[in-house]
Design a protein around this nucleic acid. Structure first.
Length: 296
DNA sequence: GCCCAGGTGAAGC
DNA sequence: GCTTCACATGGG
């Protein structure tokens, strides 16, 4: 077992882990338990003991693993603890909707996830609620993933299955994980990645447009899912996924008088929200989903 | 029963 | 170009 404390400002761990960008974290006994790569771990937001902490705004994240760790760079990268959130918030447009969303979601962050896990999870996400995506991903990992080191007396935990493992599975096996019509898309995409037709390792060297085109070649991956992977896994900060919630938020907050097409919303997003548009998108998504009642 | 869920892709105008 | 529809499955 190993542990480490990361000191952070303005980091709402619960909102971040529970904001629909990742699907494996579960609250348990005051911690968030999850898997990053091939390591089981748990995280807890704490006061910064060096300063006594700030009331109501924990400024440290405590991490514990079950196995030994000598270099914590993988977790610092995943959590993006080195990023200065204030620098990003300053680039957001100073308009009423953005001010509402930022005020409501203070400390919300974007993670830097593994591309394959992110891609596969979002292939499974279409027309599913977040709780159901979590359930499907859990079933998939339990059935196809490799077992990980966990604390004594802890239930068994498995890593996210690699593309090669999914590629050799058959559709009926995958359907037992309750993914329905998404199963053939997941298999076909896994095969294209396993056989090198699409190389996920090369995408970070491409422009955002080229990387998006590469992802959209995969079956079950359209503009929205591609943008999720570009933003959540590759860190293309200007990727702007438009799902039903973001669509509702943009329509209601910025164009209350007229109906605007999806294409025009993309054009608006690309010009209005600045270089960190993807970050702004996550604030709008979380605000719309958790805080605002945007339904008529 | 009905409607919706971090959509996509094919088919219709 | 744009609109409509099927696609599994579960929750409200």
């Amino acid at each position: 077992m190993a542990s480490r404390t990361f000191y952070v400002h303005d980091y709402d761990l619960a909102a971040t882990l529970n904001s629909g960008q990742t699907f494996r974290w579960q609250p348990r006994e005051g911690w968030w338990e999850g898997v990053v790569g091939t390591r089981w771990l748990r995280l807890r937001a704490d006061s910064d003991l060096r300063t006594g902490g700030m009331a109501g705004r924990p400024s440290a994240i405590l991490a514990e693993t079950a196995g030994p760790v000598d270099d914590w760079g993988w977790l610092a990268d995943y959590l993006q603890v080195g990023l200065d959130l204030a620098d990003i918030l300053r680039t957001f447009p100073d308009d009423p909707p953005m001010r509402l969303a930022v005020a409501a979601c203070r400390g919300l962050r974007l993670l830097r996830q593994d591309p394959w896990e992110c891609l596969a999870s979002f292939i499974l996400s279409s027309t599913k609620q977040i709780v159901q995506i979590q359930q499907i991903v859990a079933l998939l990992c339990n059935k196809f993933g490799e077992q990980l080191i966990v604390p004594q007396n802890h239930r068994r935990v498995y890593c996210f299955p690699l593309p090669g493992r999914i590629a050799e599975a058959d559709e009926s096996e995958l359907r037992t994980c309750k993914m329905g019509f998404r199963a053939p898309n997941l298999i076909a995409s896994a095969r294209m990645i396993a056989d090198g037709t699409v190389d996920l390792d090369r995408l970070s060297a491409l422009s955002v447009g080229e990387a998006r085109d590469a992802l959209i070649r995969l079956p079950g991956v359209g503009r929205k899912i591609a943008d999720c992977v570009l933003l959540f896994a590759y860190g293309f900060q200007n990727a702007f996924p438009v799902d039903v919630w973001v669509m509702k938020a943009l329509q209601r907050l910025y164009f209350p008088r007229r109906r605007v097409s999806l294409k025009r919303l993309h054009t608006f997003a690309a010009t209005h929200f600045g270089p960190y548009a993807g970050y702004a998108q996550q604030y709008l998504f979380h605000y719309a989903r958790v805080h605002a009642k945007l339904n008529d």
